[in-house]
Design a protein around this nucleic acid. Structure first.
Lengths: 340, 340
DNA sequence: TTGTAGGCGTTATCAC
DNA sequence: GTGATAACGCCTACAA
């Protein structure tokens, strides 16, 4: 199992179906069948093929296969970032679920403000993926056109709309914001500080909360936009600035748990206590939120499940299995802990 | 720019070079050149081609292109996990650097104990990537064989050995451990607790520290292995168990900053103070380490730079640019902060 | 159950 | 500067 095959120039090249066929004394087509559709091949023949595969060290060429069948077992996944803890679980879940069904993941990390999502997706499509996962629901009409033209299933994730390109799984950021607003209104709070990352969906959540809070007369709101990535340091800095003028708040509403953790750190550094001096709420229920001190009140979204389901929907669709619910609202859960 | 091309069955299909050629009144070969090697084509011809590309909505087929050229502009990346904060920066850096040079990333997340790394890599190789990134230096001889047979550049990352498969960029986990041991010996500490994730490289770091600490008579060491993923909760639980018998330590040595953060949380929950009651050290200098309260003493490794360089080495090699140093030690830095 | 012919969409190579 | 031809490695469709 180490024969190096040479081409006419004497340079080694990788084995092809034809090499395997020659070794096994069969036609390439029979070898192909033995590998991809063994049911229709006599067991003894399969054995000969396997033997020859080992001898030649054959590794199929999916470029050729994909070209011939127009099926690549490749899924393109487009996300803004993975190192901010927000999408990484979803991506890992997608990867796991795809692997389990025999697909590979072409991952494209494009940032929150891709110069041209359309161009990026076009180059991705040049690999002829069997399906594609897009983060969010705001895409240019050019993007939609090329993707429809490619004629492959699409899943948009992490948001909700009645008019997705194709399939969709996510939740309503506005409703998440509403829920946060209602929770604090119920507590009778009136003075709010928002620390919001400059990410479109974070802004929608913020506005969702504000619209509820504003329904109550006398509500005071201070908003602060912070740059991405929204890490702990950013949270600390933001709180510092927010309270530097002596202004005080009943609650600080952060667009992520990471910011919330930073806010809590900074509060304690300044001798303030959460939730005694003010409440803090985050978003996403990242893995540390439940175990922080104080534990972080947040809105949980099922990041893992969302990824698994996105992958399943795509794989089902590709394989001709009907997708019962092409638009899935995964909802959210307000998780009340110590910080608010 | 919306013409839908039909094939003989009447089903729409994506435009090919030939469709573009027909539209432009040129041969497919000229269109191909206009797109890939415009220097050798007359400007007026290029303009006609571009026009036709727009009209037909042509998106190149890299399967066909790759098959013809045996260059795919695809890099396969194999990592154990991305949702534990350890590798995610490196992966994002690789992705960024590859994108900048026109490559796509096929990301495969295999877990810490892949059933068969060899098989996984074999399926990856069936995509005929131009290069491959492997995490770690321990690979089966089968794996090495198929990868050498594929005859593509390889970069192993996150570890060091004088005998890599091909190229290598990383650091010595043993030396990291040694440095931790020496730091604490220098402080005159004698009672150590290790909280170590069940990850091969973490164990090497632990043993590196222990071998130094043992050189000092009277050293007491308690070791605890914890399961992956090594998140904050695991750190808290581990410390709880570790001190439940009343045992006390001068320092707790954690295999990651996330564990260290959990240990610090739990310590404070129990009314113990870090570093007053005991010191805590982590590993990796994750983004929160510097901003935690207390800030976390750790060993910093340049996760981002490592990814950038890994990608550059691969791309250089693929493109025929000589790689000056195929084995790169990125080193490490003991970063002394408040926790130890 | 196995084999043959032709094509998938592109590019290398050689002509013009 | 442009075009014709023949691969690249595999699979569909049909024949045996």
């Amino acid at each position: 199992m180490n024969n190096i095959i040479k081409n006419h120039t004497g340079r080694s090249r990788t084995a092809t179906l034809e090499d395997v066929a020659r070794e096994a004394g069969l036609s390439p087509m029979t070898v192909s069948r033995a590998l991809n559709n063994p049911k229709v091949v006599r067991p003894a023949t399969i054995a000969r093929v396997m033997e020859a595969v080992n001898v030649t060290g054959y590794i199929p060429n999916m470029l050729a296969g994909g070209l011939a069948t127009s099926r690549t077992k490749l899924i393109a996944v487009v996300v803004p970032q993975i190192n901010n803890n927000m999408f990484v679980d979803t991506v890992q879940a997608i990867s796991d679920a795809l692997a389990a069904r025999g697909y590979h993941m072409l991952l494209c990390i494009v940032g929150y403000e891709p110069e041209s999502e359309t161009e990026i997706v076009a180059t991705l499509l040049s690999r002829r993926p069997d399906g594609i996962v897009l983060t969010g629901i705001h895409h240019s009409s050019d993007l939609k056109r090329i993707i429809l033209n490619a004629n492959i299933p699409v899943v948009e994730i992490w948001d909700l709309t009645p008019t997705p390109i194709d399939m969709l799984i996510g939740f309503s950021h506005e409703k998440v914001g509403n829920a946060i607003g209602e929770y604090f209104l119920g507590k009778g709070f009136t003075r709010f500080g928002f620390i919001c990352a400059s990410d479109r969906r974070a802004v929608v959540r913020k506005n969702g909360a504000i619209s509820v809070l504003r329904s109550q007369p006398g509500t005071e709101i201070r908003e602060m936009m912070v740059s991405l990535p929204a890490n702990m340091e950013v949270g600390r800095t933001a709180l510092k600035e927010m309270i530097s003028g002596g202004e005080r708040f009943d609650a600080i509403i952060c667009s992520s748990d990471t910011l919330a953790q930073g806010v809590i750190m900074e509060a304690e550094a300044q001798g303030l206590r959460v939730p005694d001096d003010f409440s803090v709420i985050g978003f996403a229920d990242l893995n540390f939120a439940a175990h922080n001190r104080p534990s972080i009140t947040t809105v949980s979204v099922d990041k893992w499940d969302l990824g698994i389901k996105a992958a399943s929907m795509l794989a089902d669709r590709i394989e001709g299995i009907p997708v019962e619910e092409p638009i899935l609202d995964t909802g959210y859960r307000l998780v009340i802990r110590e910080s608010a």
